[in-house]
Design a protein around this nucleic acid. Structure first.
Lengths: 338, 338
DNA sequence: CCTGGCACTCACACGGCACGAGTGCCAGAA
DNA sequence: TTCTGGCACTCGTGCCGTGTGAGTGCCAGG
């Protein structure tokens, strides 16, 4: 087990390295922190920390830098979550309050998070797996062409074109619309298939073709919409580290463009509480030099989606975690209000 | 006026520089191109081209690189548009044919363009300024709450919540919907305000409040939707030039995140035909080291939006222009079909 | 268990140097 | 008039040797 002082040394190393971006040596440590011991003692502690794998030297005769394992210990045991200042909190609230619709909320959130953390922000759209149907609309566009519009309780709207096998009358469409809505409005997506299963049978023979194609399109849309979307921002912040890892930046940009990768990344985060994945803890290779701080958010107590930031492993964890948590909270409030 | 051969020399310089990414000297030129003259002669030509400002030396005793002015001449007079190979054309068609809705079309287009040109792709959503109303739907959500859904002929759907001053019945709403649609369906956005101006008067006193708030929301939506949206992709391709201008990459990323900047950028492009803006021809400072190749696209002969790529001034103009033109054409076809 | 001292390592910055690609100019040939 | 070969010159780049300093590990003594 590591002694109290050694943990203190590790904390000091992490803090200094995050600040200066340079390997930190024993002398500098004793000067910048009141450790109460001499550089020689610190050296011994550092040697021990290195044996345990918490810190490493880039090369002999250089200072130490924390390893992924070191950051892990720092995050778990040594660092708290740094709360935002109240001007910052006010700024968040003001900025988010101006949003007019869901797209705008997500867009503003992503910009806000990128600006606060000076890193790349990722915000998942509120998930539809747990959401419910608010309304289904059927619009006749031509004699045998119908548009299906699905409106969810999270304010999202999706539309699909449908080519019907036979001409449909305005009346029969209104009939279908009414019956369909009476069954599915207020229900969860997952329950819809069951609820509409026997619907075609109650229609005249001639309309059944249309009814079933409408239903299958609806179910398809529900499934597709369960697949999540997300928005990212602040990629320009990556250039802050271009001198560090000019070559590492490419796989990160590539990973960020792959929605699938990002969704998996957020999906790996715990459903409740904040998740920090450091360096190689990330499954995706391109992100082995980055850390991901993610947290769920939602209008109620249930998380409907996740948001977070992606940055270099050498990041200000307490500050980043504070910003992520605060933003998640405010977004939840905004969603609850609308 | 520049002689034929000097133009040929400029063309050779541009081609070699684009290929090798290194300043090109007189000797290398005569070796790689059949100019039929000696290096000394080429040197004289180069001196003349430099006097005219078409090429420059990064420093004494180095080869020449084209200036913005040189690229401009190259694009205007020396370079054609390189048509794509037929496998490439097939690949484009196959890839775009799989799209399910407008978002998907734009998303696929952006990925396609980024991949073909290996640069950053920008695609504007089909504009609504010239588009027409396909349908307006009004859905009662609660006694005094209505959702307005606007469907355009480009397949776009927008929705707005409306809180009515008084409870509305299903019947009066259906009435409003019918009368509204009979006036605006098939009409251009710009004409809508006039067409609905006198609509409130024809309703009962008690419904007028609702009617006018619905109308004003509709008009508001039309205006908002006239403001364009866009999608970008392929930012990872920027890292291909990181050794060239590691510092220049940041303002580019920043500019790319500013939708406003990009929209202005595309807006500056001519409405018909392809536009190439080279280096300092771009108004935005951050893009002074990049060129923009943009072209309008649309379902008919009229351009409804623009798309293009952003890359370093040293780019393969004929190839890029070919790809941009081809993609625009196919997207136009896809839009016309749906 | 802590501390001061000491020898050792090694990245990095600096200066000198040779190399070579590339240029401009000029006199003579076509 | 235009092209060509020759020649001197420039200057960025890579290489090498050297000195410096930050940082380390180890050890003997408090």
């Amino acid at each position: 087990m590591l002694s109290e002082r050694r943990l203190e040394v590790l904390r000091a190393i992490v803090q200094d390295y995050v600040g200066t971006e340079e390997p930190v040596g024993s002398k500098a440590l004793t000067e910048r922190h009141r450790l109460g011991v001499s550089p020689a003692t610190v050296r011994n502690d550092m040697a021990a920390l290195e044996d345990e794998g918490f810190i490493a030297q880039p090369h002999t005769s250089a200072g130490r830098i924390p390893t992924d394992k070191g950051y892990r210990l720092f995050v778990d045991k040594l660092a708290g979550v740094k709360p935002l200042s109240s001007p910052e909190r006010r700024a968040i609230q003001n900025f988010l309050d101006g949003a007019v619709d869901l797209d705008d909320v997500v867009g503003r959130t992503v910009r806000l998070l990128a600006q606060l953390t000076r890193q790349v922000a990722v915000v998942q759209y509120p998930s539809l797996t747990r959401s419910t149907v608010r309304h289904v609309e059927l619009l006749p566009l031509a004699t045998a062409r119908v548009m299906l519009v699905l409106i969810t309780d999270t304010g999202r709207v999706e539309q699909r074109m449908i080519d019907c096998p036979a001409p449909v009358t305005e009346d029969s469409l209104a009939d279908l619309r009414a019956r369909l809505n009476s069954r599915v409005v207020g229900r969860r997506f997952a329950d819809v298939p069951q609820l509409v299963q026997d619907l075609p049978e109650s229609f005249e023979q001639e309309d059944r073709g249309t009814v079933s194609i409408v239903l299958s399109t609806l179910l398809e849309t529900l499934v597709e919409e369960t697949e999540e979307r997300l928005m990212i921002g602040g990629t320009a912040n990556l250039t802050r580290f271009v001198h560090d890892f000019p070559l590492t930046i490419r796989p990160v940009l590539e990973a960020l463009e792959e929605q699938v990768v990002l969704l998996k990344l957020l999906g790996e985060a715990k459903d409740s509480g904040m998740t920090v994945r450091i360096g190689h803890e990330n499954a995706h290779e391109g992100l082995n030099a980055t850390s991901v701080v993610a947290v769920g958010y939602g209008s109620g107590d249930e998380a409907v989606a996740k948001l977070g930031v992606v940055g270099p492993t050498r990041m200000d964890y307490p500050g980043t975690m504070g910003a992520v948590r605060a933003v998640a909270r405010y977004v939840g409030q905004i969603l609850a209000e609308s």
